[in-house]
Each structure stands twice: as structure tokens, then as C-alpha cells.
């Protein structure tokens, strides 16, 4: 996981052989001075045009969701009694609903909630995956067996069904419970990967050295093991954001997710899916924003994966 300080071997490997022309990393990116791993990753990421596009799109959508309510006249909870079911106009960019709600304001409001749910849930689930996976792998034995069985059980329990069954419980309470539930069913596969990586890291010299010096296990995990798989965790968190946003949409579509008066992209799509043919703006604007958001996040995740993994993209065919 360390970056060679001497650039020459790398350079030689790149210049010779069939790899050189296929390499996504320009040769000058690996300079003559020692570049830190972080700088290398950033450079590789910046070189991916699609990933940069995705990042810019995510930031724009984020800014738009939070800034636009301060810039436009109509708020998500205001009725325009002079424009029912209006198609997109200068006043109402995304048109209006049957009651005269402004579709643009509703969509932005929904996007705020979807973003928060995605970010918060991803943070929770990746943390959980890291901790459970690392503890199971590092300590092994009974703890490992118990945690693995628990992971298997959660994988078999269809998360959609369980959250739906629990939905009457959080109806009328804060949506944070919903985020917790979403995250609780998202971490298992990553935890397995983390466990596998921990098993091999455990045998490495620096971990052994720490152990023989008497450092307690939990500290080794947080100091040595998890930082060494930070790239995996960062990628996982990014991908989780988009899958949690999608999961939210699915559950809210049936009324099992975000509850009124809260608005999310899922509740909007659920409310107006039936209007897709008659009043298309009510469906296609929220749905379009959602797809754009998820696609952009996925592009960032993909770019990060390539940036962290020097072997990704360089393959012999």
C-alpha cells in the first residue's frame, strides 16, 4: 500500500511492454520528485473526465437543492391558486400540481431530503461495515462465527420486506429512524470484504509488531487495519450514497419510507408516477433529477475506484 519513493522502477515498468499505451496515467503524472499517495490519487482522479463531470454535477445539484429555495419566489409549501396543473412556465419552471404547488420547489425540497438520507446512511453503513468486518476478522473465533451468522441472516432477510413491516413504527416519528433502518441493511457485503482484508492484514509485519508491543486489539484495528483499507471504505461509502437514495425511492414509492409532511424524491415519484402520461412534468422532472443525481454519484464512485487502484484499467488482453 506504500508508494515507492524511487520513481525509476515504476517509470521503467510503464515505458516498456505493451502496457505503456494503455495506461490511464500519463507518464508525466509520476514526476521525478516523490509524490505522496494522496497526491497520486488526486491526480489520477482529475485525469478521469467523466468522474470530474460527475463530481461537478453532484456539487451543482447539491448547491441547487440548498440554495434555490432562497432564490425563487415559490416555496414548496406555498399554493399558487392562479396556476393549477400548469405546464412549465417562467413562473413555475417545472410546472405545478393539481393543488397549485410549485413542482420545482417540491423537487428541490425532495432532493435535499434524498441527499441527506443518502449521505447520512452511507456514513453509518460504511462505519458499521468497517467495524464489524474488522472485529470479526481480527479477533476470529466465537466472535467471528457469531458475526458471520448474523451477516448471513441479515442477507437472507429481505430488507425491503422488513423495513416495510417496521414502517408503521416510525410513521409519525422522525425520518432519522428510517435512515438508521436503511443503513442497518446495507453494510453486510462490505463487512465481509473488510473481514477478508483484515485476515490478510493481520499477518503483516507492522500489525504483528504492534501486537507484540502490547497494543490492544481494538486500537490496532482503528490505527493500523482500517486506515490501510481506507480506499475501499471511501469507494464503498460513495457507492452506498447512490444505492441508499435508490432504496429510499423504492420504499417511499409504496408509502413505507419518508412520511408526509416530509417530501423526498421517492414520495414525489410515488405521488406522480400515475401522472406520467397526462401531466408528464409532474413525473419526469423529479425522476430526471433523481437519475441525474444517482448517475453523477456513481460516476464519482467509479472514478475513485480507478484512482485508488493503480491496476484498474491497466489490463492485458
Amino acid at each position: 500500500m506504500t508508494v515507492p519513493t524511487d520513481p525509476d522502477p515504476l517509470r521503467e515498468a510503464q515505458d516498456t511492454g505493451p502496457l505503456a499505451s494503455r495506461s490511464p496515467i500519463p507518464l508525466d503524472a509520476i514526476g521525478t520528485e516523490a509524490a505522496s499517495r494522496g497526491r497520486l490519487v488526486v491526480r489520477r482522479f482529475l485525469h478521469k473526465r467523466l468522474a470530474i463531470g460527475g463530481l461537478v454535477a453532484v456539487l451543482l445539484l447539491f448547491a441547487c437543492a440548498y440554495a434555490s429555495p432562497h432564490l425563487v419566489t415559490w416555496q414548496y409549501n406555498e399554493l399558487d391558486t392562479s396556476a393549477f396543473l400548469s405546464s412549465p412556465t417562467i413562473d413555475h419552471w417545472f410546472g405545478t400540481t393539481q393543488n397549485g404547488f410549485d413542482m420545482f420547489a417540491l423537487t428541490m425540497r425532495g432532493m435535499q431530503k434524498s441527499l441527506i438520507i443518502g449521505l447520512l446512511g452511507a456514513l453509518l453503513s460504511t462505519t458499521l461495515a468497517a467495524v464489524v468486518g474488522a472485529f470479526a476478522g481480527y479477533f476470529g473465533g466465537v466472535l467471528n462465527a457469531v458475526l458471520l451468522t448474523f451477516i448471513d441472516l441479515l442477507l437472507v432477510l429481505p430488507s425491503f420486506l422488513i423495513i416495510a413491516i417496521l414502517s408503521p413504527t416510525f410513521r409519525g416519528r422522525t425520518w432519522l429512524i428510517f435512515v438508521l433502518l436503511l443503513a442497518a441493511f446495507q453494510w453486510m457485503i462490505t463487512a465481509r470484504i473488510v473481514r477478508g482484508l483484515t485476515l490478510s492484514l493481520k499477518e503483516r509485519e507492522f500489525v504483528q509488531a504492534a501486537r507484540f508491543m502490547g497494543v490492544p486489539g481494538w486500537r490496532i484495528i482503528f490505527r493500523h487495519i482500517l486506515p490501510n483499507m481506507s480506499s475501499l471504505l471511501i469507494i464503498d461509502a460513495t457507492v452506498n450514497v447512490s444505492s441508499l437514495i435508490l432504496a429510499e425511492v423504492g420504499l417511499s414509492f409504496f408509502g413505507f419510507g419518508v412520511q408526509p409532511p416530509d417530501v423526498s424524491l421517492g414520495t414525489l415519484i410515488g405521488d406522480y408516477a400515475g401522472a406520467a402520461l397526462t401531466y408528464p412534468w409532474q413525473f419526469y422532472f423529479p425522476a430526471g433529477c433523481l437519475v441525474a443525481l444517482v448517475l453523477a454519484i456513481n460516476l464519482v464512485g467509479d472514478g475513485l475506484r480507478d484512482a485508488f487502484d493503480p491496476n484498474a484499467g491497466i489490463r492485458i488482453t
Partner: peptide, 21 residues
């Protein structure tokens, strides 16, 4: 696959339905 996996099933189903109509 990248685009399809970014579209929720609900939206995809509505798109197919409207395309069929």
C-alpha cells in the same frame, strides 16, 4: 449497465409502460 443501474425500477417500469403505449 451504468445508466440502467442508476435508474430506480419504478422509473424504468413507468418509462417502459409509456413507451409501450
Amino acid at each position: 449497465s451504468f445508466v440502467t443501474l442508476s435508474i430506480p425500477t419504478v422509473v424504468l417500469a413507468v418509462l417502459f409502460k409509456n413507451a409501450g403505449i
